[in-house]
Design a protein around this nucleic acid. Sequence first.
DNA 1: CATTTGATGGTATGGTTGTACCACAAAAAT
DNA 2: ATTTTTGTGGTACAACCATACCATCAAATG
Lengths: 237, 237
Amino acid sequence: MPKLVDHEERRAHIIDALLRSAASSGLHSVTMRSVAIEAGVSVRLVQYYFDTKEQLLLAAMTRLAARMGERVQHRVRATGATTDPRGIIEAVLLEAVPTDEESRAFHLIYTEYAVLSVTDPALGGRPFLAAPDEMEAFLVAQLAAAQAAGTADPHLDPRQEAVVLLAVSAGLGLSVLLGQRTAEAATAVLHYHLGRVFPGQGRGRTGPPARGASGPPARLHPGQNAAPFPRRPGSLG
Amino acid sequence: MPKLVDHEERRAHIIDALLRSAASSGLHSVTMRSVAIEAGVSVRLVQYYFDTKEQLLLAAMTRLAARMGERVQHRVRATGATTDPRGIIEAVLLEAVPTDEESRAFHLIYTEYAVLSVTDPALGGRPFLAAPDEMEAFLVAQLAAAQAAGTADPHLDPRQEAVVLLAVSAGLGLSVLLGQRTAEAATAVLHYHLGRVFPGQGRGRTGPPARGASGPPARLHPGQNAAPFPRRPGSLG
DNA sequence: CATTTGATGGTATGGTTGTACCACAAAAAT
DNA sequence: ATTTTTGTGGTACAACCATACCATCAAATG
């Protein structure tokens, strides 16, 4: 063989370029050319390592799903204690709330892929079916453990509550992505809700809220965008 | 003036064609031609009533947002009683869960628009900013009323709880859209959660759940798609 | 009756996209 | 030293897209 080239490394490099390109102007606007330019290679090379655009998009989606798993794991590990169910659950759910620009870009592309995979048969949602299933089972186990330890409300149904938690997390994350809420507001709401699931005296409020003052305003002023990230002048065509 | 033509009626007809086209193969794949064909008119006519594609998409989004409001109102009115907060809230939140193909199509396009509006500056999310704000204020009022009437848990913070409810609704609806959950499972989870907010003996369970049997399974078998709607052979290109 | 004007069809055009094809260099294999 | 193989660049091509332009028909107004 002639030139020694690590194929996987090259593929990863190109995929990263795609993700960067998609982060700035949307997944729908990525083209073979834009990816090639972003990666600093010729279009031919993108063709060489991923025969078709479909395969490139598919590979990027797979990588994205894998990275999601790493992110959650990393967050849980960063919590330190792997034994406190509440901390673990909080870490897992908070991953869905984009805080800085990096995580915002990540979740934006992830969401775009998810929505795209609904209509595009080539993106049969395999990577999106496995992850939530595992996540849900994981949460069920953590909730049950917390109940056994006496920290979680024993009245809860772990199965249903796990689904609720996942939905709250996804819904809040999406609202932040859409600019309806700030990341801080979403985080506060998530903490509030966890306080209801874990009624320990830690964070949860037990008495009724003071009238007229119920924490930081959960929504923004109308017309004000929560996410002042730069919006490129754009296509839509 | 020559031919008598109701412009608004023509525009509505074309917009409906766009929505139908988007429902079947995704918003990203709608083109002037596809809309014209679906509407049974020439491309020139689409140009005539909406000068540019951008304006067409914008008009469709506006109509979509308006229709969302009508849908929620219609659902609330169909409940009959406009005085029972729980019923009203339940109706509002259930609207986000697509049950039949029609509502699935509607919510799919709505979601596609929402995601698209993040990256596309021409779709500055005005229609998506106003609706959730109103919805949230509405829920806050209903929750407060329910608390005053003694049907809702007085420990709740109406502001935060309204955001949680909205997030649960959106998250569940999205999961159904993505084929991760059936509409029935999502509805069951929503009922469960409302039972926790309204701890009356109506639906809510008070005791701890029986071990190993916690209602209908909230998730599907892996690999099985929750929504066997026809997926057209498709582009992705 | 003439003419203006709104509604419509058809077609041309400039640009973009994904992909196929051709060429070539360099290193390994023979 | 020749041949094969692999990585890379450039370019051509067919399809498609949004849009601009040209033409026409019909109706209402003068």
